[in-house]
Amino acid sequence: MIINRPDSLRIGLFGAGRVASQLAPALIAAGHQLAFVWSRTATAAEALAATLPGTPALTTLAPPLPPADVYLLAVPDAAVAPLLAGTTWPSGALVAHLAGALPLSVFEVQPAVRGGVFYPLQTFSPGRAIDWPTVPLCIEAADARAEATLLALAGSLSRHVRQLDSAQRLKLHVAAVFANNFTNHLLGIADALLAEAALPAELLAPLVRETVAKALANPPFGVQTGPAVRHDSPTLAAHHAALAAHPAWQALYAQLTASIQAQL
């Protein structure tokens, strides 16, 4: 797991959800120490801490916070600003959020801290292990010392560390939503259509694997196939009719078809 181990850092982890539960053991495996785990739900913090030998659960944010080299905010985006503003931080504390779409300027609500970003570009789901050395970690910081610390921390987990500013990271996050969330939604629609026809989902597996492999090896717009590219009006009309029971999917099909044809 250890990619480029810096001196061991003491880390305060805020959050006990999908990201925090994957990140916490990775940090320990990389040689770091967890000063505490905190969650808005005390039982969640206690449950995660119980899986991390020697890590206490923090059940209150009453000052003073336990000391740490870095405080990581693995909490929902909407919770970052209130958590920053409502917590009494040690003066000059290095605090980094893990959000893709939040700018560095979110730290302006709390001038007592040195702000940073520690954004892991990956999808996190219960029961699925993360291969941290392959996960891109995107770093941004308000000052050079904070940046150096976050780069060292990222380098202890991953071989793919990048410094991105807030505007770049926002574009990356939007791209990730298209590549991951929207793709998964479309696969869900495909799965449902197969189920309606009493067909097994694994029928699509070879096609999906080849589609992704081809898109990763080439500019995706350049290897687009299908009836939209061919302007195959009879097939497009047949598909439209086949989706009559699902008007929302029918509209999505038409919109995606138009988008594909606009790229030709």
Rank of each mutant, 00 (worst) to 15 (best):
A45H: 09
A213G: 09
A96I: 08
L193A: 00
Q22R: 04
A201P: 00
H240T: 14
Q163Y: 03
L207W: 12
S259Y: 14
P219M: 02
N4I: 09
I260V: 15
L13Y: 03
T134H: 01
E210P: 13
A262I: 07
Q168R: 02
K214N: 03
P234M: 00
S21T: 14
I28L: 15
S105E: 05
A141T: 01
L170K: 05
Q255E: 07
L187V: 04
I28D: 02
V37C: 00
A30H: 01
G54Y: 10
N181H: 15
L121M: 15
E147L: 05
S39C: 07
R18W: 09
A50E: 02
A198W: 09
D69N: 10
V80E: 02
P136R: 09
P66W: 03
G15R: 02
F107N: 03
A47L: 00
V19Q: 05
A238W: 10
A96H: 01
G15Q: 00
A248T: 12
D232T: 11
Q255P: 07
A129D: 10
P66A: 13
A175M: 09
Y119R: 01
E46M: 13
A112K: 11
L27H: 00
A205E: 09
P219C: 04
L137P: 01
P247V: 11
I189F: 08
R162V: 06
G226F: 04
T211L: 03
A238D: 13
S8G: 12
P133S: 11
H185Q: 15
A24R: 03
V174W: 02
A241H: 14
Q255S: 15
T55M: 06
L153F: 09
G226Y: 07
A112S: 08
L73H: 01
G12I: 02
Y119H: 05
A215H: 03
A50N: 09
H97C: 03
A144W: 11
P76S: 10
L150W: 01
A50R: 09
A175S: 12
L52I: 06
P227E: 06
P90N: 10
H246I: 13
L102H: 04
T87F: 10
L13F: 12
L58P: 00
D7F: 11
L83W: 08
A179C: 13
D131T: 11
W132Y: 05
A228M: 08
A141I: 03
T235D: 13
V95T: 03
R209L: 04
D77Y: 12
Q163K: 12
V109I: 14
A146H: 00
L256H: 10
P206T: 07
L151M: 08
A45Q: 03
L153T: 01
N184L: 15
Q110P: 04
P63R: 11
D143I: 06
P126H: 10
A176M: 13
N184H: 13
T87P: 09
P200H: 02
A248G: 11
T60D: 07
A93R: 05
P247C: 06
A50F: 05
T60M: 14
A85N: 12
G100I: 04
V135G: 05
E196C: 13
A248W: 08
S39W: 04
